[in-house]
Amino acid sequence: MILVYTTFPNMEEAKKVCKILLDKKLVGCVNLREHLAMYWWEGKIEEDKEVGAIIKTTEELKEKVIEEIKKNHPYSVPLIMVMKAEVNEEYLDWLKKVTK
């Protein structure tokens, strides 16, 4: 299993992109959390509310998930972070059944 992490400007955009991933059966589950983000942009430090998405999928679907996020993401430079995850076998079996 892998986790894909990305951020969105608001819950509406996050839900829109994550629903696409779910509808296409590229992911099994998504967790969305609102948080404060501080970052450099165009020479100055910005501070905004964002929504972080923890996206759960399989290693085999990684490239398709990344491609779909890039195609639908509202940011010109979105973060797409991929992390390997060790999970219990029952969860991994479920994840493999609900994705294609």
Score class of each variant (00 low, 15 high):
65 V>I: 09
89 E>K: 12
84 K>Y: 08
85 A>V: 14
8 F>G: 02
10 N>P: 06
51 V>Y: 03
45 I>L: 08
55 I>W: 02
88 N>E: 13
56 K>F: 13
65 V>Q: 08
95 L>P: 04
31 N>T: 10
7 T>H: 08
17 V>Q: 01
22 L>K: 12
50 E>N: 00
80 I>M: 01
67 E>L: 05
86 E>H: 05
54 I>G: 01
38 M>L: 12
53 A>Q: 01
79 L>Y: 00
98 V>K: 03
52 G>W: 00
78 P>Q: 11
84 K>F: 08
74 P>H: 11
67 E>T: 10
38 M>T: 14
14 A>I: 14
37 A>M: 01
31 N>A: 15
23 D>S: 15
76 S>K: 13
81 M>L: 15
25 K>V: 08
79 L>Q: 13
13 E>C: 10
32 L>Y: 01
37 A>D: 00
26 L>F: 07
32 L>C: 06
25 K>Y: 11
56 K>Y: 14
26 L>Q: 08
46 E>N: 03
85 A>L: 14
52 G>C: 00
48 D>P: 00
100 K>R: 09
42 E>D: 14
80 I>N: 00
1 M>D: 07
47 E>H: 07
65 V>S: 11
21 L>T: 09
27 V>C: 07
17 V>I: 08
20 I>S: 04
92 L>V: 11
12 E>Y: 03
64 K>P: 06
85 A>C: 11
84 K>T: 03
37 A>I: 00
13 E>T: 00
